[in-house]
């Protein structure tokens, strides 16, 4: 496993597209986990300029334990597309440069090849989960009014859910990249699928009130794992925990994309 990760990192790290996407992702992560409060303070000062002292967004406990975990993960997951693009690049490059063929000729089995990509997807998910954990701890300690072990760690399982969300989504992009083999078309299809197809079906299912359609949409199912926590700040009820059946669905989608990708690579001639 370390050998495959080593191979994959050697292929990907010097790649410019990967570097640019990774930097964008890291910047987004730092802004989300550090910049929201300063933004609220800026809003407050603007409101004050307009003599609207009554509105104070800084009272929203965005960065306070334990709310911070659900808040950070549910916002950060919107940037998963950046990691998805980097993975699509890495798989479609192997096809357009024909290096997948050369890798197999050199002695990698097709299964090892797929696993090197899956391990990379897992590595990226684990790294961003870890980074989010560290950043969350830092800002949490800065902004929380009350700190205790149970407050800090009570909702930390949202990070685990975040990891599964990212990993399942990256398996989806791996499948799209393997299926299409052309980077631009694969990325276009990914965006089209997420924005048009899934949203279209979602809205249609809501209109017709057919609830199960949502479960057939992979990205919607993945997004739904961590519920949007923000309505609770205007006193609406939200699901502030991870439901087991939703977690099971995400794992099921991940497994399905793994199976489909493996089948594609093994059946095809290179």
């Amino acid at each position: 496993m370390m050998r495959l990760l080593k191979i994959e990192l050697k292929k990907v790290m010097p790649n410019r597209a990967f570097k640019v996407l990774a930097i964008m992702y890291i910047v987004a992560m730092v802004i989300i986990s550090m910049g929201v409060m300063p933004f609220f303070q800026y809003l407050k000062s603007k409101f004050a300029d307009f003599d609207m002292d009554g509105i104070d967004p800084t009272i929203i406990p965005f960065y306070e334990f334990p709310d911070i975990w659900q808040n950070l993960t549910s916002v950060m997951i919107w940037f998963k597309m950046l990691l998805g693009f980097s993975l699509i690049f890495s798989i479609t490059n192997e096809y357009s440069y024909r290096t997948i063929r050369q890798n197999v000729i050199d002695g990698l089995t097709k299964n090892e090849f797929i696993w090197s990509k899956i391990i990379m997807a897992g590595f990226l998910s684990a790294m961003s989960t870890l980074a989010l954990f560290v950043l969350g701890l830092i800002t949490g300690f800065i902004y929380s009014s009350e700190i205790s072990f149970s407050l800090v760690f009570s909702d930390v399982y949202f990070l685990l859910a975040f990891f599964f969300q990212l990993f399942a989504f990256l398996l989806f992009t791996l499948f799209v990249g393997t299926l299409i083999r052309k980077s631009i078309i694969a990325m276009g299809l990914l965006i089209f699928w997420v924005l048009a197809v899934e949203n279209g079906f979602y809205v249609w299912s809501k209109v017709k009130s057919i609830d199960w359609v949502e479960y057939l949409l992979p990205v919607k199912s993945i997004n739904a794992l961590i519920h949007n926590p923000f309505p609770k700040y205007v006193f609406m009820e939200v699901q502030d925990y991870i439901a087991w059946h939703e977690m099971g669905l995400v794992i099921l989608w991940g497994a399905l994309f793994y199976w489909a990708t493996t089948r594609l690579v093994l059946k095809r001639d290179l």
Binding site: K11, P14, N15, R16, N93, Y97, R98, T99, R101, Q102, V104, I105, D106, G107
Partner: peptide, 16 residues
């Protein structure tokens, strides 16, 4: 395949 060396018509490597 680890004991085989192959030289094919078009050399294939990562261009970057």
């Amino acid at each position: 395949r680890k004991r085989i060396g192959a030289i094919l018509e078009h050399p294939i490597f990562y261009p970057y």
